[in-house]
C-alpha cells in the first residue's frame, strides 16, 4: 500500500470521516448537493430533516452502498473510491444498522453475529462465538442466541443487528432510523443500547427523529433539506435557537 493512499487528507487532525464537496445524482435527480462534513473520532452526530431530503443516501454513501459522483470521502484516512481494496477496508471499519434490521433470516442469532467475523476477519469459530456472546450480553439478549430472527420481537431484532455490527469491532457506527420500524414500547430498549454505545466513545452517525435521544447523546445535530446541509449546531443551540426558517418549520412539526 503506497503512502499516498493512506495519507489522511487533512494531516494532523484526528478525523474519522471527512466529506468534501460531495455530490450525488439518481439519474437526473440531484439528491446530494455539495456536502461538506467532518466528523472527529468519538464524535456523536445526529442527522435529521424532512422525508426524502437525502439523509439515508448520505450515510449510505459513507460505506459505498451508494456511489457518490463528485467530491471526496475519506474514512479514517482512506479515500473511498472505486478501489475495491479501499471499499473492503472501509466496510470493515464501519458498522451499519438499518431501519428494517436486515438480519439474515436463515441463520440463528449467533450465526448472524459470527458470519462476518469468521469469513471476513478469518477468526476461529470459538473466538467469534465468544465475541458474539459478549456483545449479545451487552445488548441484553444472550438467552436468544439460538433462536432465528423470525422468532424475535422487532426491538430484539434491532438489538441483534447492533450486536452483529459490533462483532466486527468497527470504529464508526452508522444508524439509519434504527427505531422507526418499532412499536413505541420497543423503542426505548434499542435507544438504551445506543446510549450505552455513545457513552463508551463510539463514533456515531445517526439518522433519527428521536429528539430526546438527540439531546442526550449528540455532540452535534445536522439538519438537511432537499439534499443540502442547511444547519449544524450543538443540540442545545439547535433546539432552542434554530437559525434558518426551514429548521424552525421542521422543528415546529416534529416537536
Amino acid at each position: 500500500m503506497t503512502q499516498a493512499m493512506t495519507q489522511p487528507a487533512t494531516a494532523g487532525e484526528d478525523l474519522a470521516i471527512e466529506v468534501k464537496g460531495m455530490h450525488k445524482w439518481y439519474g437526473d435527480f440531484h439528491v446530494l448537493k455539495d456536502i461538506n462534513l467532518n466528523v472527529k473520532r468519538r464524535e456523536r452526530i445526529i442527522i435529521c430533516g424532512p422525508s426524502g431530503c437525502g439523509k439515508s443516501t448520505l450515510i449510505r454513501c459513507l460505506n459505498r452502498l451508494e456511489v457518490h459522483q463528485r467530491g471526496e470521502i475519506w474514512i479514517d484516512g482512506i479515500e473511498l473510491n472505486d478501489d475495491l481494496k479501499h471499499i473492503e477496508k472501509i466496510r470493515r471499519d464501519i458498522g451499519m444498522v438499518f431501519q428494517q434490521f436486515n438480519l439474515f433470516p436463515h441463520l440463528t442469532v449467533m450465526e448472524n453475529c459470527c458470519l462476518a467475523p469468521i469469513w471476513v476477519l478469518k477468526k476461529p469459530r470459538r473466538e467469534a462465538e465468544e465475541t458474539a456472546m459478549h456483545y449479545l450480553e451487552r445488548v441484553k439478549i444472550p438467552d436468544q442466541a439460538d433462536k432465528y430472527p423470525g422468532q424475535l420481537s422487532g426491538g430484539q431484532q434491532q438489538r441483534v443487528a447492533i450486536a452483529r455490527s459490533l462483532c466486527m469491532n468497527p470504529n464508526i457506527m452508522l444508524f439509519d432510523e434504527p427505531t422507526s420500524a418499532l412499536d413505541p414500547e420497543m423503542i426505548k430498549e434499542v435507544l438504551d443500547v445506543m446510549v450505552d454505545l455513545a457513552n463508551e466513545g463510539m463514533t456515531m452517525l445517526c439518522v433519527t427523529h428521536e429528539m430526546g435521544f438527540a439531546k442526550t447523546v449528540a455532540d452535534r445535530v445536522i439538519f438537511m433539506d432537499s439534499g443540502e446541509i442547511i444547519e449544524e449546531n450543538d443540540p442545545e443551540s439547535f433546539f432552542s435557537n434554530p437559525q434558518s426558517d426551514r429548521t424552525k418549520l421542521f422543528l415546529s412539526q416534529i416537536l
Binding site: N63, R92, Q100, N102, L115, W119, V120, R164
Partner: peptide, 15 residues
C-alpha cells in the same frame, strides 16, 4: 429477496 439482505452483507464487509 429483499434488497436489504445484500446490503447488510455488503455493509458487513462480505465479498
Amino acid at each position: 429477496l429483499p434488497k436489504g439482505q445484500s446490503e447488510a452483507a455488503d455493509a458487513l464487509g462480505l465479498s
